[in-house]
Amino acid sequence: MGRLLLHRLGGLAVTLLLSSMAIFGSLYLAPGSPEDVLFGSRAPSAAARAAVARELHLDRPLPVRYWDWLTGVLHGDLGRSMVTGQPVTSRLGHGLGVTLALVALSMILVLLFGLGLGTAAALRPGAVDAATNALTSVSVTVPPFVASTLLISVFAVRLDWFPASGIGTGAGGEIRGLLLPACALAITNCAFLARVTRNALREQLEREHVQTALVRGLPRWVVLRDHVFRNALPPILTAVSLLTSGTFATTLVVETAFAVPGIGQLTITSVAQKDFPVVQAVSLLLVAAFVICNALSDLGHALIDPRLRTAGRTT
């Protein structure tokens, strides 16, 4: 377990390093240079342009600039926003908290309804299964930006239960403001997880050892807990981890739709403003979220059963 943990942490570091290179490189290779952002629509003289480039260290070769940036990041200095002049860390700080709360709230909904619906469908063949199947078939096709529009028009505009844009203050207001965006993020994921759960449970329920466990006189709930759910857990865990990391990426759309001041919205505005240091930082954060989710899922697999390699793997 300790070795696995070290292995995963090493992998995390390498992935972040490689993706930081890719992000740093691609942003500077992309058309539109950083100093143009500062000048805006003005046409600066060559001397002024060179002075700004020197000020931003843009006259140095790319590897040197990358190294400077990397050592800064390792010391907790992500640079300054080129638009507002604030340190990037302080711009990220608040947004990160909001986005983490949004993703957590959304995943709680996904776990609650996805696992619930999937379990109900698996254990009750017939009407319940068919109804769940119909529901998930429809909702799996509702992308978050469509869901956002629908939810805003119904619950915020017509019913006025929730704010249509922005979030309130205090814990209560924040949760109230995040509930609609969380739902928008959760709808597709719920349906996906419900399907994965249903199929994983069905596969286990059809196993001979499960069918005959009742013949051995074991109570039904023991059979479900120890033989069905336990063996169905690996694919479900994999799905949850993939959905969680995917949700981080989808916050870009949903936070913009609901004007939630999180990382997603910050990414969109920074990209539009070509605020390079901020874009670099948020891209790196998204990569980190992906890698951390995967690492947690692998650790979870190892916790469920260190020697379980064949049963229930979705790969």
């Binding site: 050892h209 379980l308 064949t310 049963a311």
Partner: peptide
């Protein structure tokens, strides 16, 4: 439970009749 104590069964395929975990 009572029926299980009266009669038990061993199946053909020991690969599927045991819980892999």
């Amino acid at each position: 439970n009572r029926r299980a104590r009266e009669l038990q069964i061993v199946f053909q395929d020991p690969y599927t009749s045991l819980d892999p975990s």
